[in-house]
Nucleic acid binder design. Sequence first.
DNA 1: TGTATAATAGTCAAAAATAGTCAGACGGGA
DNA 2: TCCCGTCTGACTATTTTTGACTATTATACA
Lengths: 159, 159
Amino acid sequence: MAALSDSIEQFIKDLLTDDTRVELKRNELAQYFGCANSQINYVLATRFSVNRGYLVESRRGGSGYVRIIRITANEVDLLKSLIEKIGSSISEEEAKDIILRLHEMKLVTLSEARLMYAAVNDGAMSMPVCSKDALRASVLKNVVVQAFKNAGEGRENAV
Amino acid sequence: MAALSDSIEQFIKDLLTDDTRVELKRNELAQYFGCANSQINYVLATRFSVNRGYLVESRRGGSGYVRIIRITANEVDLLKSLIEKIGSSISEEEAKDIILRLHEMKLVTLSEARLMYAAVNDGAMSMPVCSKDALRASVLKNVVVQAFKNAGEGRENAV
DNA sequence: TGTATAATAGTCAAAAATAGTCAGACGGGA
DNA sequence: TCCCGTCTGACTATTTTTGACTATTATACA
């Protein structure tokens, strides 16, 4: 049921559980999963972005490689960088990345991550907005419904 | 005589007798019943609404899915009354009361309750607002900071 | 020492695989 | 007959997967 991309993502993350970086051959990995080479690039671009806390380096040519580095940071630095990243405006996707990252760093549980996402997804941001109370109603409704969804105990991995 | 919708409804409910949630492919189900894909959406909309005790989530694209979550009768009553109470506008105090209630009923943990409150308190509601992204930044900043506070493990008992 | 070749990786647009929306057709009961 | 719940089909939206083409680098060889 899991998409190919999800499997590849998990495979790489497993390699990163102990180490903070891993090096691999793009075409070997593609071969292993029986997919197009560019599929690997897709996974790297969508699942191992800087916003999600990873750096990717690579080299072409003979004995080339792809290196994936998990960014580690202490809480103070992380919080500062996230606040800066958020700034005064942020897209739904970027917000999702930040929340995912907090979850991967085990700062929040999956349920908490889902609640956070429910508070900031497009659906919660009712526009045009005319008052704080109206906005609050929209956000609150979203998080309350999410709380009920969580209570049904979702063990999947998506926010 | 509304045989088709009823059959699909029953089929899904049978899947939900043991589990509280089930995941399926819209087009596979439509194929199985030999009907239009949109028929499934009709069934979901008319038979698996919140009022009837269900929450529905889905994702498009490769390996997409439709997930149906069954909640208990008590939860339905509670959720309905909360949604009604929230309406289209709600004060900070009332919102807090609702969140506290969810916590007291053990639907959310203390950490989760705090995150929820962080998402809807006055500080998060930056007004006047000019865009969804600006609004999102404000709410997200608030919940991210709260996540760190939670992680820093506050042992107080107030939301 | 240059240069051709093989071995890598990257890019991008199109195709495939999903799901959602909505207006209108259809059909049975009040 | 008219209304209302069903059902369909065409069109849209989203996410993943692939393939053709490009770019880069190490190495072998002239």
